[in-house]
């Protein structure tokens, strides 16, 4: 790819300057080496240093640069800029308070993650060596532990938009199932009690936006279904 100009429409809001948010039309000439959307907005920032966004690893493992790209949540670093229809419309992740430009306040998202007790509980005395786990049992954690907490899923979920304080959301529920599925964890009953509530788990209406947007190809809806199955099995 050679040098080319790309056109953006970007949500801008600086609480120190702006009374209200606005959409900015702006273009930038990309270098041949600029391949991902993140490369393009980093290039843009060299022209206008007031554009604010989070970024770190630029390879899709840290989860910093989630944003709404042409109407769909995704990671800027894993999105090919040349595959996007122009003007490329960038907005902050929906449903969370905007702090500035593409930066949202993720407090509520992490509060829900923390609410599911995202840590292994095993009250047996710690053995001298590792706890054994068969390869098949370990396999159960695949598709669960890889979550990068980017919040693409939860902020694409209408149930989370309406009840971010009551519905755990797909990311938190995926993490909840990650511990329920771990043969080393002993807290199954308390974990299910923690979710047995009209909102926390059962606000999931299998709309599946979460699956559609997950940049790691994970499936929170399936994990939520498995938690529901465990509840049913526990009840009978």
């Amino acid at each position: 790819m050679s040098k080319r100009t790309v056109h953006f429409k970007i949500y801008r809001y600086d609480p120190d300057k702006d009374e209200k948010p606005y959409m900015q039309d702006i273009s930038v000439e990309l270098e041949a080496s600029d391949k991902k959307l993140l490369d393009a907005i980093v290039r843009l920032k060299t022209k206008d240093d007031t554009l604010s966004f989070r970024r770190s690893c630029r390879e899709g493992v840290c989860g910093s640069d989630a944003m709404n790209i042409n109407g769909k949540n995704g990671l800027a670093c894993l999105t090919d800029v040349d595959g996007l229809q122009q003007p490329i419309t960038l907005r902050p992740l929906p449903g969370l308070p905007v702090i500035r430009d593409l930066i949202v306040d993720m407090t509520q998202f992490f509060k829900q993650y923390h609410s599911i007790k995202p840590y292994l509980v095993n009250n047996d005395p710690a053995p001298e060596r590792e706890r054994l786990q068969s390869p098949d049992d370990r396999e159960e954690l695949n598709g669960l532990y890889e979550c990068i907490l980017c919040a693409c899923c939860s902020t694409s979920c209408p149930s989370f938009w309406w009840n971010p304080d009551k519905f755990v959301g797909p990311a938190g529920l995926l993490a909840a199932y990650r511990f329920l599925a771990d043969t080393r964890d002993q807290d199954t009953n308390a974990r299910l009690d923690n979710l047995e509530d009209p909102y926390r788990l059962f606000r999931c209406h299998t709309i599946m936006n979460c699956v559609d947007v997950c940049p790691k190809g994970l499936n929170p809806t399936r994990a939520i279904g498995k938690i529901k199955d465990m509840m049913v099995r526990r009840a009978v």
């Binding site: 706890r131 054994l132 390869p135 954690l141 080393r184």
Partner: peptide
């Protein structure tokens, strides 16, 4: 491992 790290297994 005791903290819950999902190591691959033999």
């Amino acid at each position: 491992e005791h903290y819950g790290m999902p190591f691959d297994r033999t």
